[in-house]
Amino acid sequence: MSRLSDANVALAKDIIRRYPRPKSALIPLLHLAQEQEGWVSDEAMAHLGELVGVTAAEVRGTCTFYEMFKLHPVGKYMVNICTNIACQLLGGEELLHHAEQTLGIRAGGTTNDGLFTIEDVECIAACTEAPCIQVNYRFGLRLTHDDFDDIIAALRAGNTPEKLITANPGEVIPSHGTLGLSRQVMTEVQTTHIVAPEQVTEAPVWLATSSKDS
């Protein structure tokens, strides 16, 4: 729908500076666009292309490879249910079916009120805690069908579901698109001078001095 906001452009430029080549910032910037809108629009992709110096088509090429980027609006809460082997053994598929029935949509679909999208996903690295889900990438572990209903009810009521794990206690579940709530901050003072690889020709100084010593 739209280009990055001014604040996000500033952030984008800061992120681009962390990489020896601007295009490397593309995935983090696509996340930034998705954080702003909840999905990634054509206009946002064109804007990112301008920022990193590639064509809109190249941005689209990268964007469409990755499952997390949505090219159309999705629910405020993305509910990912793992059905891979460890979860399947302990009821992952049944949990998915339960979710489909309670929310009245099939995997891939979004509820009419725009609140929930369900996805049937691959292993999300919580296999010992099967069956498990993620809501906007926050984990819900060893869930019964009732637990699942509680999570949905809490989200509908605007609360943080007890069964979802956040980095800090009671943190809200942000809308779809926002990942970690804090960002790395790199100011000029602290960092080394990050440059394109062709601008570096010598061994780093600490290696050079140590080989002289020995």
């Binding site: 995935i27 997390m68 990912n80 993620q134 906007n136 990942l179 970690g180 804090s182 790395q184 901050v185």
Partner: peptide
């Protein structure tokens, strides 16, 4: 870090800072 690991990203960002 894997994209789906929001909490890990947050923890690492804080730790790096």
């Amino acid at each position: 870090v894997r994209g789906e690991m929001a909490v890990a990203q947050q923890r690492i960002a804080d730790a790096l800072n």
